[in-house]
Amino acid sequence: MAEKLMREMSLHGLCSDLITYMAIVEGFCDTGRAEDAYSVLKVMRMHGCEPNLVVWSAALDGLCKCGSMERALELLDEMKKGGKFSLNVVSYTSVIQSFCKRGQWIEALDILDRMRFFGCHANHVTVFTLIKSLCVEGCVEEAYRLVDKFVMEYRVSYGDCCSSLVISLVRIKRLEEAEKLFSGMLASDVKPDTLACSLLLKELCMKDRVLDGFRLLDALENMGCLSSIDSNIYSILLVRLCQRSHLVEATKLAKIMLKKSVWPRPPYKHSAVDILIQNGEKDLVKQLSNMHKGLR
């Protein structure tokens, strides 16, 4: 109906404006008709309405989602040749993601090199996209080499790169390797990101390695890396420590939670509180409770 209306407008000598064309481009992309979205760009220019970066990017994203990678590369070249736009990292990363989904690493890395050539720096999403895809395909050694490449050639922080690799290793069930890399980061005073910390801590808890989890959390606390850790992680770890009678560690963790204003959450709350009270930590529980009331 939208196409029909645009044809009627044309027959009556009415020209569509940028907003109308943008709506059509997005509509074609949303319904998987990326080639039609690409054609709209030509129609726009024929009618003297020059596409802006938002329109170009929408068409590019649609082509990538539909798997029209050759056309997407053509569009990238057109966007650069026009000289009117400075392509951003989002546009390039969209193309890289699509190549990664198809296992086309050479093409994905070529786009990465193209980004650098045109002065567009990779961000943590670009890094994670490539590293995750390589790990999922079992190309872990290539992922390690890519970390070095990102750090040396693309000016991405070592912490961001290694955090992405830790996350990817945990997700492909290579926990021991993820731990080794994570420990190496801490030993070198490299701060991991929040997701890497939370994911590794949760995995250790799920593997019933609560003391290892506590030691890791304690080390992260000393480095100041716990500001955004999921509060459920504290709760799970506290309950597991209590259940395993690691009361010294449980008490220390409860004090960390008090310091950070973190209250145990259901379904962990009652178990942890009961065990702490049974072991003479009524005052600590009272402080936690008062802190919780204050937050409410």
Rank of each mutant, 00 (worst) to 15 (best):
I19C: 09
L53Y: 06
D17H: 07
S289D: 14
S289Y: 13
Y38C: 07
L112V: 06
D193C: 14
T129C: 12
Q104C: 11
K101Y: 02
K191T: 08
L238R: 01
F99T: 05
D208I: 00
V127K: 01
L18S: 14
G280A: 03
L217T: 08
S133V: 02
E26Q: 14
V55T: 15
V147S: 08
V55H: 02
L41G: 10
Q104M: 15
S164D: 07
E137D: 15
Y154I: 00
R209Y: 06
K101T: 01
R171S: 13
R240A: 12
T129M: 01
I111F: 03
V147M: 08
R116G: 00
S168K: 07
I172P: 01
G62N: 06
E50S: 12
K132R: 14
P51C: 07
N123R: 03
S227Q: 13
V156K: 02
D193V: 04
E137L: 09
D208N: 14
D283V: 04
S163G: 09
M44W: 09
L216R: 08
V166N: 06
L130W: 01
S157R: 06
Q278M: 12
I256A: 04
L238I: 01
P264V: 07
N52T: 03
C100T: 08
L204R: 14
E137W: 01
K149H: 12
F128C: 07
M291C: 11
L87Y: 04
G280D: 13
G159A: 15
S91I: 02
S163Y: 11
A250V: 02
K293E: 12
S39L: 10
A23R: 09
K101Q: 10
T93I: 00
S98D: 12
M69L: 15
A72R: 02
L41M: 13
M291A: 09
D30T: 10
R244K: 15
F150K: 09
S231Y: 06
G294I: 03
C197S: 14
T31I: 14
R265N: 07
G138D: 09
Y154S: 09
N290E: 15
L216I: 05
A143R: 05
M69N: 08
I111N: 05
H121E: 07
F99P: 02
M291D: 08
F150R: 08
W263F: 14
H292V: 01
A187Q: 13
L53M: 11
C225G: 04
D148T: 11
S261R: 15
L258R: 03
G159D: 15
K191C: 12
L18H: 09
